[in-house]
């Protein structure tokens, strides 16, 4: 089938369809009554739930930590206070970055050129990785919050070797993941293992689209050079 035959086939079939297409007036009228959707109402329930849990966690744990710092500083383990404070700060940063990214995604102007919009949208979705990187930094904090003075006074060498090994290992992995979780490593086995769940699919699909866009832009640059 040659070029003209292809176009003729497509156009003749769709012209017939187009003539018989009917737009449902009732539904389009409903759309014109839509107030511009606010950010929250356009979000999926699971995202709203995640945000609420994150905000509540930061609010409750944050106020508890502040309260303990002010009123019971000498009665509470300093390790617990520091671990909790670091955890709250990192979660708060992740929540703020998450809200900022979602807001940008939901306010995209779809009438801009396809490649620009898809690139921006995909980059925004892929930048969800930054939140994961921040959250992984919490790993070592979970291994020190239960430390206390009596562990130093009464603990034996064997327990300390185990404890310090765990904390150092977690610190190593937290830092390693912080620097290595990035788009460029998307084909690595460990990356695929971490991001294998269904909830990561939109982000992985955005990565795939970004690769396609890179292919297009590569050709664009080649053409410019020639």
């Amino acid at each position: 089938m040659n070029e003209n035959e292809l176009k003729l086939l497509w156009q003749s079939a769709h012209t017939k369809l187009e003539d018989s297409l009917q737009v449902n007036r009732k539904n389009t009228e409903d759309i014109t009554k839509l107030k511009v959707q606010n950010f929250l109402s356009s979000m999926k329930p699971i995202k709203i739930f995640t945000l609420i849990v994150g905000i509540l966690w930061v609010a409750i744990l944050g106020s508890t930590v502040v309260h303990l710092f002010i009123h019971a500083y000498d009665q509470v383990s300093l390790y617990f206070l520091c671990a909790a404070a670091i955890q709250v700060v990192l979660t708060a940063i992740a929540v703020v970055v998450y809200i900022y990214q979602l807001n940008l995604i939901y306010n995209v102007d779809f009438s801009k050129p396809v490649l620009n919009i898809q690139e921006n949208l995909s980059k925004l979705k892929v930048s969800t990785l930054n939140i994961t990187r921040i959250l992984f930094l919490q790993l070592p904090v979970w291994t020190i919050f239960y430390w206390n003075d009596s562990m130093f006074e009464n603990g034996n060498l064997f327990l300390w070797i185990i404890q310090v090994s765990i904390t150092l290992t977690m610190s190593y992995w937290a830092i390693w993941l912080f620097f290595n979780i990035k788009f460029e490593n998307r084909d690595q086995k460990w990356f695929k293992l971490i991001f294998s769940g269904k909830e990561w699919q939109p982000m992985l699909q955005s990565m795939e689209l970004l690769s396609q866009i890179e292919g297009y832009q590569g050709a664009e640059n080649e053409n410019t050079r020639h």
Binding site: Q22, N24, N27, K198
Partner: peptide, 29 residues
């Protein structure tokens, strides 16, 4: 195209904030 490419990559069964469709948005007679 922008909506289609973005939409196509979503799990359409998890969509929310939709208007209840009284009938198809567009149909062929």
């Amino acid at each position: 195209l922008n909506v289609a490419i973005s939409f196509y990559r979503k799990n359409t069964h998890q969509q929310n904030a939709r208007l209840p469709l009284t009938d198809e948005m567009m149909h062929i007679q």
